[in-house]
Design a protein around this nucleic acid. Structure first.
Lengths: 188, 188
DNA sequence: AACTCGTTATACCGATTGGTATAATAAATG
DNA sequence: CATTTATTATACCAATCGGTATAACGAGTT
């Protein structure tokens, strides 16, 4: 593994365990077994490191996410695909998911908000598009697409949190269940 | 307002806006218009300040919470009461709720985790008790009380997040809706 | 062999961190 | 009025913060 990859790996571990603000650049460099200027050579500054951690760990997620959010006139199946994308990320990279999912709801100012907010909005906007497109097929969800996007993400996160706590497994059945339960609340 | 109250108020604002770790004790003292030793006189150390912010802002919440979690053989009504307790806190003290709700899911080490974890567990345990008691009346929720406690909190938080974002209002009707939708998923 | 280029280390910068020793002040009590 | 007691400020501590100037290092290239 290259020095750069080791730095990214250790940064993620420390950011998750102690928080971004509480993690000094020195500590990351020490954990990676290199000097501080090496870190600055690769990432420019602390925020660059944060950005790199986010980008690398979300690379394949975005690919799957963009594919899943292409609405195909079957809202429930579309939501199931989306849920599975999140489940996959959680299973493939639980350390990162646990960290990222807490940051998207953190209203702090500073580096974290500036870097994470656009990533969250991109998810929210794509989900809103899905519900907006679906509302042309189903008349029952007038103007609530924004609220649906919010709470659907909440439902997914709730399952993943249970998974990360060892309570459940993230099966296709689980994705099926939460999507059906979610849509029931809208249509009924 | 006493000096102590001003310190608690400013600490909450800064903790929420910039995060606990990123907020220096000096900044809190400056914001309150007093010297640093004044802060240490009242709270001992930074963690004592954190503890005091949590305790004071949750004082009336716990009273209402303990009353609401007394299961009375009507699971839906009990859940509604609980939801309203959270809604009340969010409406009465949105600044605090926005801060606290992000911390309970943050798996960091350090002061925040040590102070917040027991508060979260107390909520979780009380909710588990509710579902456990209810499972004696309803046979359909065998051994899943822990998972229900998790996801019920998730549902509530999802509503409150939507409220804090200006999307919805936290009415009694909203509490009714989410509890019914939640229980449907369990019984069906 | 000379040279370049990407990578890394030593040592340092000013600013800020959490925390404190000392003492001046204010109010309350005798 | 004198004394205590609670409250506040000035000034400081070692440690760490994010960030950098300088240069040594090894691998290729010419």
């Amino acid at each position: 593994m290259s020095t750069k990859e080791v730095l990214l790996q250790q940064a993620l571990i420390l950011f998750r365990r102690e928080g971004y603000d509480a993690t000094g650049v020195q500590k990351v460099a020490d954990a990676a077994g290199v000097g501080k200027p090496t870190l600055y050579h690769y990432f420019g500054n602390k925020r660059g490191l944060l950005n790199a951690v986010l980008t690398t760990n979300l690379e394949s997620f975005w690919t799957e996410f963009d594919a899943a959010t292409a609405y195909n006139h079957e809202i429930v199946k579309t939501l199931e695909s989306i849920a599975r994308v999140y489940f996959d990320l959680a299973k493939r990279n639980p350390e990162f998911y646990a960290w990222f999912s807490t940051m998207v709801v953190t209203p702090n100012e500073g580096d974290i908000h500036d870097e994470v907010a656009p990533l969250y909005e991109r998810q929210l906007n794509a989900l809103m598009e899905v519900f907006l497109a679906a509302s042309k097929d189903h008349g029952n969800m007038k103007g609530r697409h924004q609220r649906y996007a919010y709470s659907f993400l909440g439902v997914i996160n709730s399952s993943v949190q249970a998974y990360l706590s060892g309570l459940i497994k993230l099966t296709d059945r689980e994705a099926f269940d939460i999507c059906h339960q979610f849509m029931y609340g809208i249509f009924s």
